[in-house]
Structures are given as C-alpha cells and as structure tokens.
Design a protein around this nucleic acid. Structure first.
Lengths: 203, 203
DNA sequence: TCGATTATATACCGTTCGTTATGGAAAGCG
DNA sequence: CGCTTTCCATAACGAACGGTATATAATCGA
C-alpha cells in the first residue's frame, strides 16, 4: 500500500518530515482519543501549522485514519504474530504479554488507542468508530479460527467454545488497557495476566 | 445522604421534577460520556432550560456527580449485593450476570457510564475522572477482601492470587462493557461469561 | 531571470461549547 | 393589594472548535 501523500517535483519543498509528523500525531490521538485531540494539540506536537497539516493529510479525520494505520502496523503487530504461535496457550501468552508491553509500558501512552476512540464517539465521528470496530472484528475472526484449529489439533479441549474464548481473551486485553489507563501498576497487571494464564484450559 | 438541592418555601415553585430530570441526565451521560454530553443534549433530554438546570444543579460537573450517585445506587447495586453471595464462584456469577443485565441489556444505554467517562478525559474534567476512579478502587478493594475471605473459608484454592483474580474479574466486566458498546450481541457476551465461569478456579 | 508552482504564516470564518446577565411571570407573606 | 422571592425564557458572553482565505516565501523548469 503506497502512501497517498503527493511529493511534487516542482514548487517549494516542505520543511517537515511527513512520517515524523504522523508519528507525533499518533501519540496525540493515542493519549487523548479522536475527539479529545484538538487541531491545536496536533499541530503543536507535529511542529507544523494548520494549513501545512491540511495540505499534507487532508483533514483531521483522514489524519486519524493514517495514524491508525501506523498504530496497527507498528504497535499491534503482536496481535498478528501471536497467531503463529504453536499452541493456543502460547497464543494467549503472546497476546497478553504483548498487551502488557504495548498498553501498559512506559514509553507510549497508556491504554489502547482504538478502545479509546471507539468508545468516545461524537456523533459526527461515526466513520472513526466504524474504522476501529472493523479492524477489531477482523482481528477477532482470525483468533476464532486459530482456536478452532487448536481444537482440531488437540491443544484445546474439544468442549471449549472458541468464540467465547476469543471474546474472553479480548475482554482481558480491553480490561488491561482500561486499568492501565486508570493508573494500575505494572505489577497489578502482571498478576492479572498470570491469574488468567493459570486458568487457561489445558488439553 | 440528603439531597443538597434546596426546596424553598417562598417564591415561584419549580415546574419540573428534580429526580425525573436527574434520571434523564443520567441517561445522557451514560450514553455519551461526560465530555460527549453537551449542555444542549442535557437540557433537551431533561425538558428544562439552561438557567433552570444551573439553578437546580449548579453546573455540568455537579450534575454529573449527582448523576453518578444515582447510577451507583440504582444501576451498580449488583456489585454490592454480589459480595453477600456465599461462595467466591457465586460472587463471580452474580457480578458477571449483573454486568450482562446492566451493561448489555436493552432498556439502558450499552456499556458502563464510569468506564466511558474515566477514559474520555478532557484535561479540564480531571475531577470527573478522579471521582469515577475512586469509586472503582473502593469497589475493587471490597472484592479483594471478599476473595481473601473465600480463601480462608476454603471455597477458593489457597494458591490463587486474590488481587490478581479481582483484577481479572474487573477486566471481564470492563471487556463486557466495551464489547456491548461496540455492538456485540447478547449471545456473544453470554458465551464470554459462560467461558469465564467454566474456567473459574474450584477448591 | 522569469513565471509557475507549492509551502508556510497570519489572520479569520462560522459554529458550538459551558456559563451567565437580563426581564418578565408566578407564588407566599404582609 | 404590594412586596419579596424564586422560577422561567431569551439572548448574549468569551473561549475553543474544525477548517480556510490571503499573502508571502522558496524552489522548480525555462
């Protein structure tokens, strides 16, 4: 997928790096959510003025979608890599520890950008919510299929509900994000994960 | 706890019911969150004008705190009643089924009002977030103590981490609220709850 | 060097936000 | 009836919102 940001050959060259600016915008959206991030917040963090932002990214909504792309490819890569783990239990471990690092670490904002922006939905930002929910649904479908395969391969008991287990694992991820954003310590969240993994169904 | 809304003996009587208006305000805050609920939304739903609202409730922030009181006493009563259940497993069942009814039912807005308003935190609404987080922390403390008691009474295995189990149960509640707000069906959420209870530690 | 083209900077647009001042209507008390 | 008190309705406040018009600066091909 190519970037749709034109780089002309004529005229005055832009004085900022589009990728750097987008990374800064991602941090603002991550910390404040779509509605909570104002254009003033964004331009200040990106180090550019509003006309430059609009010329380079279109508008606030288009900027968010591009930032969400970056978030998914860079920060949620663990959710895709988890599916390659050999057993359902290791899939869950990969998911949960990935969530700890990504959503409760110290370098990036606490919590999940998608969760934040899908809940705080101003009526005019319906396409934002739809984008986030669509990506989440496709991730969840892939996990259901992975757990179905695990049942077929015998590393999940036959009686477990793959759909229910997927919803439960996602609930844990969402709870981790919520509690991380609410100020829970890393120790508390690790104990949450350890308790969850101790209950994980064994074949 | 007495209502701090004065009811004078002289002067023109107010033409609306304070309790009815507060219940309507609660629904707006519940559906949209603190920042997402505008004064226009609130006055329209409450059927009163802005000066009446300010005279009766103070301002938007005070109105939210009063609505949160109502929410806690009427809608979150199940989290207190759950602690009276005889075993830790029944406590968890009460919590989870209560969350299904309250946060995924058809009569009230989907999701959890506190979760919504604690995540979407405009910088000037810090007292809102603090209020919600304080109530949640006190609820969680009570649950930890209940699970400690369950371990002493033998209906929870001695090796389980009461703090971790509490965080896990709250994560499930939060995940239920998130997924309910995202459009999950009641069937999906019931399977989430059933899967979680199937994994519940037995003595 | 000269237009053509594009980026930046400043200032402004209309709208909505939470909040309040102003003026009149309705009740209790003398 | 007056007088006071309280309520309701209209309109306005300053600030912040997302988004732009305008003018100037910088770089291209010719």
């Amino acid at each position: 997928m190519e970037s749709d940001i034109a780089t002309p050959v004529k005229g005055r060259p832009r004085e900022f790096c589009v990728d750097k600016a987008l990374a800064e915008a991602l941090h603002v959206f991550w910390a404040k959510g779509y509605d909570g991030a104002s254009m003033a917040d964004l331009t200040e963090a990106m180090g550019i003025t509003k006309p430059s932002l609009y010329a380079a990214f279109g508008n606030k909504e288009a900027l968010f979608h591009k930032a969400l792309d970056l978030y998914e490819t860079e920060k949620l890569e663990y959710t895709r890599a988890a599916l390659d783990q050999p057993t359902a239990r290791k899939v869950a471990e990969y998911y949960l520890h990935g969530a700890l690092m990504t959503h409760a670490g110290t370098t990036d904002p606490k919590g999940c950008m998608g969760l934040l922006s899908s809940l705080a939905c101003s009526p005019e930002a319906e396409s934002i919510k739809a984008d986030v929910l669509g990506r989440r649904a496709s991730s969840q479908r892939a996990l259901v299929e992975r757990f179905e395969r695990a049942k077929a391969e015998g590393d999940l008991p036959a009686h477990v509900d793959a759909q229910g287990l997927t919803s439960l694992l996602y609930a844990l991820l969402q709870g981790i994000s919520v509690q991380a954003g609410a100020g829970a310590t890393m120790d508390e969240l690790e104990r949450l994960v350890d308790t969850g993994l101790a209950l994980w169904p064994s074949a």
